[in-house]
């Protein structure tokens, strides 16, 4: 469960104070598949970064499973990210010198998972995202869609309680984007992992059950589709 209470974030650009978030209150329950939508500059990436403990709010609180993240030191935040949060980025952000397998392996190495178990999990997950044959490929030997699948596998491999995806389909063509979204939806259903996206892509909103719309750093709309839609 993620809860934001009166979240504010100001950026200083030169001498001008630019408010990116202006009082966000939101609750996202475990296992939700939520899109945070809005035009660029509306504050959605900032919100995701703060939820993911990559950035700190200027004011307000963020609670993850009841823990006030603001009160954690950088080491504890790193630990929280290591254990509970998976990230998927717009630009995929795979480590270029590592193969698909090795990229997915990093979170498990960080968690001290032993080698045999690591292998089993990675191979399983690569099959699940449809890249069983790409195990030894480096990022530059894969298409954008394939890279994003690896990135999703990397985010999911440690079985986090939530995956934060910042514009995950923005760099993909619409067919590939659909496939990726379908995959994430499937994984959400199967593993019960919370998925939170930021997007300005109508397609992503179509796939999500709940869509939170941001504009100028404020929530302007919060719609949940009825089940079975």
């Amino acid at each position: 469960m993620v809860e934001a209470i009166d979240l504010h974030k100001d950026y200083k650009i030169g001498k001008v104070l630019f408010p990116a978030l202006r009082g966000i209150d939101i609750k996202i329950a475990n296992g939700e598949f939520t899109a945070i939508a809005g035009p660029s500059g509306s504050g959605k990436t900032t919100l995701l970064n703060i939820i993911g403990c990559l950035d700190v709010p200027t004011k307000g609180k963020i609670l993850i499973d009841g823990t006030n993240v603001n009160e954690l030191g950088s080491k504890d935040k790193a630990n929280l990210r290591k254990n509970k949060i998976g990230f998927v980025f717009q630009t995929f952000n795979l480590i270029p010198v590592l193969t698909a397998y090795e990229n997915i392996e990093i979170p498990l190495i960080l968690l001290d998972v032993e080698q045999g178990k690591r292998k089993q999990k990675i191979v399983e997950l690569l099959e699940e995202v449809g890249l069983g044959e790409y195990i030894d490929r480096r990022p530059n030997e894969m298409s954008g869609g394939q890279q994003q699948r690896v990135a999703i596998a990397r985010a999911l491999v440690k079985e986090p309680s939530m995956v934060l995806a910042d514009e995950p389909t923005a760099n993909l063509d619409s067919t590939t984007a659909k496939e990726i979204l379908a995959l994430m939806q499937e994984l959400n259903g199967k593993h019960g992992t919370t998925f939170i996206f930021s997007t300005h892509d109508q397609l992503v909103m179509d796939y999500s059950r709940r869509t939170v719309s941001l504009r100028d750093g404020k929530i302007v709309d919060d719609k949940t589709k009825p089940r079975g839609h």
Binding site: R81, K82, I95
Partner: peptide, 8 residues
Amino acid sequence: TLKAMGFS
């Protein structure tokens, strides 16, 4: 990216 994954 590594920091996001939990590297301190």
